[in-house]
Write a protein that binds this DNA or RNA. Structure first.
Lengths: 195, 195
DNA sequence: GTCATGATTACACAAGATGCAATCACTTCA
DNA sequence: TGAAGTGATTGCATCTTGTGTAATCATGAC
């Protein structure tokens, strides 16, 4: 028989999500999580850098896919369009078919400021990674960062809509709408500031 | 004579900034900070919710001013323009004349991921506050959030430029440039995604 | 059969953070 | 004048997160 039950990471993630759901993030201790998962505290911190990280297993996979899409993109497209296509493709591939579980986890994150800070940090890291991938294709560094930032803004707006219970459209379509809404907003206000 | 030396908060902020500068945020303990400031740990945590918060004294003041500007704005202007004017005014009033110290503090923040997460959290909170202030003026909630987000993106782009050592333009002008750059970026890419 | 690997564990400990009660100069007000 | 209340600071105990280090021992390679 195996020395340990397999799937330690999964068990920790599941136990943590359950407990955060039941009693909130702050009122849940790592001791409780590892007890439910049948492991020790030291093992928890071997797998996750800190208590928050247990909720963010998906982000590295997402980032890898997005960067891959950008690297494979048509060299002639403008940077923002490259990123929008990449986000759309990854939405279809990794997010769309598990809306319920993704939305559930996001609800837990949004309910706690510490977790929200981590979420924002992940988004910022992804923005930087996208900008770096755009620079790989050649092009101005500032333009790359700007395209990455605008795309991530659209992604965020779309994601917030997508996780609302009454929303039925696909994330890809919401993404398109969000970018268009950004354009409308900006076009109406880009004129010189008064002195 | 007074029972305690006045300016406890100031002394803590100054000591913390010095120490973070000298040896980094992580390698500085609260014990060291309070020792330099001539106070106790308990007092530190009476004034600041956690160790990071000691660096963010300016944010609440900034937020108050920005919200005030928005509340006093011309009712006929489009939301994004309202926010851009408010950010420009507050940049002139609170930021422009102390570029060196603001840039210095930002450098300390940017050097540490934990502090950067807090910075992102503050920006997100400010975005939400701006959106709420726009809603006060009447108008769609989504449009308010969008205008707030776009303005904060421009602010962030402008701020990053403004804190570069070789940059000499005023934050207000960089803000204007940033919004225009956003517009150019978006206009070039807002068309339907391919299936 | 021996050996290296690697996930898990035990233990000790630093550091951050909180609750609670005590101190005592200063202010208020009868 | 003096009694009472205020509020910033402190001391102490305690909980929780996070880390360094060494030990354990099934598994797989050779």
């Amino acid at each position: 028989m195996p020395r340990w039950k397999p799937g330690a990471v999964d068990r920790l993630q599941t136990a943590a999500l359950e407990l955060f759901d039941e009693q909130g993030f702050e009122r849940t201790t790592v001791a409780e999580i590892v007890q439910r998962a049948g492991l020790t505290q030291r093992t928890f911190f071997n797998h996750f850098a800190d208590k928050r990280e247990v909720l963010f297993g998906l982000s590295s996979e997402l980032q890898r896919e997005i960067i891959g899409e950008i690297a494979a993109a048509d060299a002639a497209l403008p940077p923002l369009e490259v990123v929008m296509r990449a986000l759309g493709a990854v939405a279809d591939k990794l997010l769309e078919h598990r809306r319920a579980v993704v939305a559930h986890r996001y609800a837990v994150i949004a309910a706690n400021p510490e977790l929200m800070e981590r979420e924002l940090g992940k988004n910022a890291a992804l923005t930087d990674a996208i900008a770096a991938a755009l620079r790989e294709r050649g092009g101005d560094a500032d333009a790359a960062y700007l395209a990455a930032s605008v795309a991530m803004l659209a992604e965020q707006v779309a994601f917030r809509a997508w996780t609302r219970p009454d929303e039925t459209r696909a994330l890809r379509d919401l993404l398109q709408d969000a970018l268009h809404a950004v354009r409308t907003t900006v076009d109406a206000a880009d004129r010189p500031l008064p002195a």
